[in-house]
C-alpha cells in the first residue's frame, strides 16, 4: 500500500491521498485471482505487497473467472474438466463444483449472484446453472462457438457473443429466449454493459473493432471503434477484454498481440491513449475501488498493474503460464 501511495503521490491531489489513507485497512486485503490456462492453477496476488501469496491447483485449463457479489466466492471455469469450480476467497479452498455443460470458457453471474450463465463453446449453447443447488435452469441455443457473456445491470438482459457466427445474441432472462441478434465484426469475444445499462460494448478480435450498442434503441450499433497504433501491424490489433469504470467515463480495452490496453472516452467513443502492457493481453479486472485495473498477459506470463487515475502502467507481476482471466475482491 505504502509503495502505491508513493507511486501515485506525484499525481494525486492531497484530498485524494487522504481518502486513500482512510480506506487503507480495507485496501490492504484486496486480492487478485488470476487463472493460468496452461498451468492448471490460479495465482492469488496480494495487491498490497504485489506478491503472489498462493498458487492454487485447479481443474484443467482454467479460463473464465468471476466473484460472487459479496466477494466471498470465486468461480473458475475449468474448461477441460467440463465444470465450474467454486473457491473460498479467504481460505482459497475448493468449496464445491458446479455443472457447466461441455467446454465452459466464459461465464457471467446474474447481478443478484444467481444464476451463473455459462458459454459452452463446443455446443452452440448457453447454460444457466443455479449456484445454490447446482440445478440446470436453462439451456439456450445460440450461434457457433459461444464465448463472451455480459449481463445488464438490472439483470434483465443476457448477451452472448458467438465467435464464428459473428453475432451478439440478446437473451431475455425472464423467458431465456433470444430476442435480438446483432451482427458485429469477426470473432466477437467479450460483451460488457456499462453500469447504468445505457451502452453495451462488444469486442471483435479478428475484426479489430469494438462495437458500442444502444440497448434502448433496438440494440443498434452506435459506433464501431477502430484502433491504430503507430508501428503495430493492423493484424496484431485484436480487441478482447473490456472494462468500463463505474462512473461511466472511461473504458479499457485489451488489444491482444498488440500488447496494448486502449483507454476510450465513453462519451466521444474516441481512443484517448494506448498503454504498453505485457504480451498478448487478454482480460482485464478492476480493484473494488477502481483505482487500479489489472491486465492478464498470456504470452509474457504476467499481469500488468495500471493506475486508472494516472493512466499509467505501474508494475508487472509474474504469475503462472498463460494467465487468462482476473477478478479482484476486497
Amino acid at each position: 500500500m505504502t509503495r502505491r501511495i508513493l507511486l501515485s503521490a506525484g499525481l494525486a491531489a492531497t484530498a485524494g491521498l487522504m481518502v486513500m489513507a482512510e480506506t487503507l485497512p480495507a485496501q490492504a486485503q484486496v486480492r487478485a485471482f488470476v487463472t493460468n490456462e496452461r498451468d492448471h492453477t490460479m495465482s492469488v496476488v496480494d495487491l498490497d505487497s504485489l506478491k503472489v501469496i498462493e498458487t492454487v491447483k485447479t481443474g484443467r485449463r482454467p479460463r473464465g473467472i468471476t466473484a460472487s457479489p459479496d466477494g466471498k466466492l470465486i468461480y473458475v471455469a475449468a474448461s477441460d474438466d467440463n465444470r465450474v469450480e467454486v473457491y473460498d476467497s479467504k481460505t482459497f479452498k475448493l468449496v464445491k463444483t458446479l455443472r457447466s455443460g461441455p467446454d465452459p470458457e466464459l461465464f457471467v453471474l446474474a447481478p443478484s449472484g444467481n444464476p451463473l450463465y455459462i458459454a459452452n463453446e463446443d455446443d452452440n449453447m448457453v447454460t444457466a446453472v443455479n449456484v445454490e443447488n447446482n440445478e440446470l435452469v436453462a439451456e439456450i441455443p445460440v450461434g457457433v462457438e459461444p464465448e463472451g457473456m455480459g449481463v445488464s445491470p438490472d439483470g434483465k438482459y443476457l448477451v452472448n457473443t458467438s465467435e464464428t457466427t459473428n453475432m451478439a445474441h440478446v437473451i431475455d432472462t425472464a423467458t431465456n429466449e433470444v430476442i435480438e441478434n446483432i451482427l458485429v465484426d469477426s470473432r466477437p469475444r467479450v460483451a460488457q454493459f456499462n453500469h447504468d445499462g445505457t451502452q453495451l460494448w462488444v469486442s471483435a478480435e479478428v475484426g479489430g473493432t469494438v462495437a458500442v450498442i444502444d440497448p434502448k434503441d433496438k440494440w443498434k450499433i452506435i459506433k464501431k471503434i477502430g484502433f491504430e497504433i503507430p508501428g503495430v501491424n493492423k493484424d496484431a490489433i485484436q480487441p478482447v477484454g473490456i472494462r468500463i469504470t463505474k462512473d461511466g467515463s472511461k473504458a479499457f480495452v485489451a488489444l491482444g498481440p498488440a500488447n496494448r490496453v486502449a483507454i476510450v472516452d465513453t462519451k466521444t467513443l474516441e481512443v484517448e491513449k494506448y498503454l504498453l502492457v505485457g504480451q498478448r493481453v487478454w482480460q482485464l479486472g478492476f480493484t473494488p475501488d477502481e483505482k487500479l485495473i489489472l491486465s492478464t498477459n498470456g504470452n509474457s506470463n504476467d499481469v500488468s498493474i495500471i493506475d486508472v487515475g494516472a493512466e499509467k502502467v505501474t508494475k508487472s507481476v509474474a504469475v503462472g503460464r498463460s494467465p487468462w482471466g482476473v477478478v479482484m475482491v476486497p
Binding site: 453475432m167 433470444v178 441478434n181
Partner: peptide, 10 residues
Amino acid sequence: RDALASGRFL
C-alpha cells in the same frame, strides 16, 4: 452445418 447454425438467425 456451421452456416446453418449461424444463418438461422437471419
